[in-house]
Amino acid sequence: MRAHFSPPSTPAEREEKWHSMREAHFLAPSPYVWKAEETLSYMDRQGIAMKFLSNVPVTLPALQPSNDYGAGTMTGYPAWFGLLAASPTDDAKKAIGEVERMSGVTDGRAVTSYFNGVYLGDEMLGGLDGLG
């Protein structure tokens, strides 16, 4: 099972993100705080043995600390959490660098399917023949 997580943040950062999510029509009733212990408790109640954590910030400065936090959580709870490390979609060299940086640490990769107003399946990206 895959599940989203979020690294620690300040109350002001959570409030700001919550307002932007509400503006984008997400119906979150309050600012979200992810905690490994609460997730483990939920997993136990639901009979879930393991989750692969995933978080895909869109900028490299946000993405690297998120990957590091996820890797630390995975290391702290190795029987319960795996990690799909995020890779940036706006710069191929940065993406390769982040894949190399997280190599051997994570269970896989995750990318956002939407960047700069374009979904990865958009026809304008059809020039990527041979990659499918």
Score class of each variant (00 low, 15 high):
83 L>D: 12
75 T>Y: 01
87 S>M: 14
89 T>P: 05
92 A>V: 03
99 V>G: 03
83 L>Q: 12
71 A>L: 08
82 G>M: 07
90 D>V: 10
75 T>E: 11
76 G>K: 05
98 E>N: 11
70 G>K: 08
93 K>Q: 09
97 G>P: 01
71 A>Q: 02
82 G>Y: 04
91 D>I: 10
96 I>Q: 11
81 F>M: 04
95 A>Y: 05
94 K>N: 13
74 M>Y: 06
83 L>C: 09
70 G>P: 12
81 F>C: 02
84 L>P: 00
76 G>T: 00
96 I>P: 06
81 F>G: 02
85 A>V: 15
87 S>C: 13
73 T>C: 04
81 F>L: 05
78 P>M: 00
82 G>C: 06
77 Y>S: 03
92 A>F: 07
100 E>V: 01
85 A>I: 14
76 G>V: 01
101 R>E: 06
95 A>Q: 13
93 K>N: 12
80 W>D: 08
82 G>L: 02
84 L>H: 10
92 A>Y: 08
71 A>P: 00
95 A>E: 13
94 K>V: 04
84 L>K: 06
87 S>A: 15
91 D>H: 14
100 E>N: 11
103 S>P: 07
93 K>L: 09
85 A>E: 13
86 A>Y: 06
103 S>N: 07
79 A>V: 02
78 P>Y: 00
97 G>K: 03
78 P>K: 00
94 K>R: 09
90 D>W: 12
75 T>Q: 02
90 D>F: 05
77 Y>P: 09
81 F>Q: 01
84 L>W: 11
83 L>K: 05
88 P>L: 01
88 P>E: 09
79 A>C: 04
91 D>R: 04
75 T>S: 13
75 T>P: 03
87 S>K: 04
86 A>D: 15
